[in-house]
Write a protein that binds this DNA or RNA. Structure first.
Lengths: 218, 218
DNA sequence: ATACGGTCTAAGCACCGCTCAGATAGGCGG
DNA sequence: CCGCCTATCTGAGCGGTGCTTAGACCGTAT
C-alpha cells in the first residue's frame, strides 16, 4: 500500500477541474455526487452488492473517506437517491414502451417484458429500489412520489383493459401483477428458479402469469 | 506470560453452569449454539434486522465476541443454519395443513394461508431463508435439500389438481405460485402494499391470485 | 491422577460508518 | 487588486463490526 493514495491530484498543476468538465459544480473532482451514484450502481449490479461501502466508493474515485459526506447525508441518503432515480427510470421505460405499442392487447405483453428488462438490465437500480434499508424509509416524500409514479402507470394500463373496475379493484390488480413479477425477479436473483424454470422460458412464463392475473373473475 | 487472565469468574464459586440448565450439553453457557439461533431469530424478526451482528448476539447472551465462532464457522454459517430450519419448518407446516384439510379444493386455500401465516408468524425464519447473503450460498447441499423439500411439496399438491400435467409444467406452475406469494410477502414487508391493499383483504386477495395462476390455460 | 478435547476469554487486526478541525479553491464585493 | 465567504476536500479519530490467535478453563476418558 502506501504510495498510491499519496498525492493524486496535487502533482504538478493544482487544479483537478482541468478542462472545466463541461457542466455541474466542477471542483476537485468534477462532479463527485454524480460519480458516487454511478460507481454505486456498478457495485449494486455486481455479485458483491452487499459489501457496498462509502469507503469503497471513495477509494475507487480516489478521494478520502470523508468526501462523500459533503454530497450525501449518509449511506441511506445515497441509496434512497438511487432508488428515486430507479423509479423514474422504470416509469420512463414503461411509458416509452406503451407509447410504441399502441392500444391493442400486445401492450400487456410489452409492459411485462419491459419490467423484466428493466429489472435485469438496470439491476443496480432495481436492487436500490427494493433494498430493505431503502424500503424502511418509504416515508420519504420524494421516494414515495417516485414509486407512485410507476404504480399509477400500471393502474391506468389495467383500467384500459377493465374500464368497469372500481378504483380499489384496479389497485389490487396492479398489486397482484407487481407482486408476481417482483417475485419472479427476486426468486431468480435468489437462485431457486435456476433449476426449475429455464432462463429462456422465463419471459413467456411471466407473460402467461400476468394474463392469468389480469383475467381474474370480476 | 504477563497478563494472566485476571480471573473473572474465578472469584468465589467457579462454575458458570450453576443451576444445571436442565438439558443439552451444559457447559459454561448451557447450549450456546441453540441460544445463538434463538436470539438471532428474535433480531431477524424485529425491525432492525439489518444490524444483526455476532457481537450483538454475544452481548445479549453474556459471552465474549469470540465464543460464537466455536459453534458457527462465520456469520453466514449461522444464517444458513437458520434458513435450513426455516425450510423444514415451512414444510412441516404445509404438511400438517394439507393433512388436516382432506382432499377437496379447500386445500389450495389452506396451503396459501399456511404460507402467509408462516411468513408473518415466523418472520425470523422467513427473513433468513431469503436473505441475499443466504441465497448466494444456495449451493450448500443441505440448504438446497431443505428448500427442495418445500418446493416438491407444492409440486405434488399441484399435480393433485392437474394430474395430466408434465413434470416441467408442474414445476413452472409451482414457481409461479411461489413467486406470487413471495412477491406479496416481500412487497408487504417493503412497504408499498400498505396503502394499496388493506391488510384485511390480503389473505382473500392471495387466495384469488393463487387460483388464477392454478387455472392457467393448459 | 493425568492427559486430552471441547468451550470460553482476552487481545488484536482490518474494515466499516460517521464526525470534526483545518487546508484549499473559486466566486464575491470592496 | 485584495480580502472575505462558502463549498469542497483532507487527515485524524471514535466506536462498531467480522474474524483470528493464544491461552485459560472445565469435564471426561484413560
Amino acid at each position: 500500500m502506501a504510495a498510491q493514495a499519496k498525492s493524486i491530484n496535487r502533482g504538478s498543476s493544482p487544479g483537478r477541474p482541468k478542462g472545466r468538465t463541461s457542466s455541474s459544480s466542477a471542483y476537485h473532482h468534477g462532479d463527485l455526487r454524480q460519480a458516487l451514484k454511478e460507481v454505486a450502481l456498478e457495485v449494486l449490479a455486481g455479485p458483491d452488492a452487499h459489501l457496498l461501502s462509502f469507503r469503497e466508493l471513495a477509494r475507487r474515485l480516489g478521494v478520502t473517506t470523508a468526501a462523500p459526506y459533503h454530497h450525501f447525508k449518509d449511506r441511506a441518503d445515497l441509496l434512497v437517491s438511487l432508488a428515486i432515480d430507479g423509479f423514474h427510470c422504470l416509469h420512463a421505460s414503461m411509458s416509452q414502451t406503451a407509447e410504441a405499442a399502441g392500444r391493442d392487447d400486445s401492450v400487456v405483453e410489452k409492459l411485462t417484458l419491459a419490467y423484466l428488462d428493466f429489472a435485469y438490465e438496470q439491476r443496480g437500480y432495481y436492487c436500490a429500489m427494493f433494498l430493505p434499508e431503502v424500503c424502511a424509509l418509504r416515508d420519504v416524500p420524494e421516494l414515495r412520489a417516485a414509486a407512485d409514479l410507476s404504480f399509477d402507470y400500471v393502474c391506468r394500463a389495467i383500467l384500459h383493459f377493465h374500464p368497469q373496475l372500481a378504483e380499489q379493484e384496479v389497485s389490487e390488480r396492479a398489486v397482484s401483477l407487481w407482486s408476481f413479477l417482483h417475485g419472479v425477479v427476486t426468486l431468480r436473483a435468489a437462485g431457486p428458479l435456476g433449476r426449475r424454470l429455464p432462463q429462456e422460458r422465463e419471459r413467456e412464463f411471466a407473460v402467461e402469469g400476468v394474463w392469468a392475473l389480469l383475467r381474474l373473475p370480476e
